[in-house]
């Protein structure tokens, strides 16, 4: 009874073909409008990326010359390049990643293999996720407080530590994700053969998850290579060639920052060259990371 009542009490489209047609048209129109808007939104996103890349290519390539790679930064008006900044960035990003990666891997392993579902594990995972998204400028201020102030001045090491802190949560995330994908039957098989747990983790789990972990490391390098804010307060920057980590050290992003904000044409041009180098580097690392991961699947 109730069924027939609802059917008759609802002014359904079946009763009046004209109303039904109008309603149908309105629904279709709304659908088309939303679809179009969504496509426009996506096109807009792509347009931003293309605009950034085009700007970098046009302005970066006109400023590019061998001198960019062979000369150190120089006062405006004289011949200068970015060699010290490029090398400084490479050194700091490499050592920072080298320090942060093992720590991040151990934490990720702890979360996936020892503390899955435990309260302590959840807290660590939460804290690591907070660190992953925390403003990087605060990491810089923190390292300034614990390393720069007490040990008498800005240094490459302080920059390295700041970058390592940024690397850790990135590696934690991917390591845990990748280890969670490994089926438990594999673990049981290894334990069943009488292997101790650490051997199971190192020689079986890490090995199976290796391509995923490498992806995480590549993404971490890409992330720290472009970081500017944490280096402002730690390695500061250096206008001369220096590979001494106990002294202030130049880096590409900080150099770009100070050059782009200057009133000198040749410095701004160099900043664009640097911006092109760093973006190409970061984007290729990202694409490489994606290829590594896809090769696994």
């Amino acid at each position: 009874m109730s069924l027939s009542m609802t059917a008759s009490s609802v002014p359904g489209p079946r009763k009046d073909p004209e109303v039904a047609a109008r309603l149908g048209r309105r629904r279709k129109r709304a659908d088309v409008i939303v679809r179009t808007l969504c496509m426009v939104a996506t096109l807009l996103g792509i347009a931003f990326l293309i605009s950034i890349l085009l700007t970098l290519f046009v302005r970066g390539f006109t400023a590019m010359s061998p001198m960019v790679f062979t000369h150190s930064t120089a006062p405006p008006g004289s011949e200068g390049g970015l060699a010290n900044a490029i090398v400084g960035s490479l050194i700091q990003a490499t050592i920072g990643t080298a320090i942060g990666t093992p720590i991040g891997m151990l934490v990720g392993t702890y979360l996936a293999e020892y503390a899955r579902g435990s309260k302590f594990g959840n807290v660590v995972r939460f804290v690591s996720d907070i660190l992953l998204s925390a403003p990087s400028i605060l990491i810089g201020l923190f390292v300034y407080q614990i390393l720069v102030l007490p040990f008498g001045g800005f240094s490459g090491w302080a920059g390295v530590v700041a970058l390592a802190i940024i690397v850790i949560p990135v590696v934690v995330r991917t390591t845990e994700d990748m280890l969670s994908l490994i089926p438990n039957t594999l673990r049981e098989a290894v334990i069943g053969l009488g292997s101790p747990k650490w051997k199971m983790i190192v020689f079986v789990c890490w090995k199976s998850a290796m391509s995923g972990i490498i992806t995480g490391i590549l993404l971490a390098v890409a992330r720290v290579a472009g970081e500017t804010a944490p280096l402002l307060f730690t390695s500061l920057g250096n206008n001369t060639w220096s590979t001494d980590l106990s002294r202030p050290m130049a880096s590409l992003p900080v150099t770009i920052y100070s050059f782009a904000g200057s009133p000198f044409e040749d410095w701004i041009a160099l900043a664009w060259a640097g911006a092109l180098i760093i973006t190409l580097g970061v984007l290729s690392l990202n694409i490489l990371a994606r290829t590594v991961l896809r090769g696994r699947k």
Partner: peptide
């Protein structure tokens, strides 16, 4: 398309600053 949007996330912050400013 998904990769392109993700690359947008990978562009360093300072590049956005320069692009925005200039």
């Amino acid at each position: 398309l998904g990769t392109a949007i993700e690359l947008l996330a990978a562009v360093p912050s300072i590049i956005y600053g320069m692009w925005g400013f200039f």
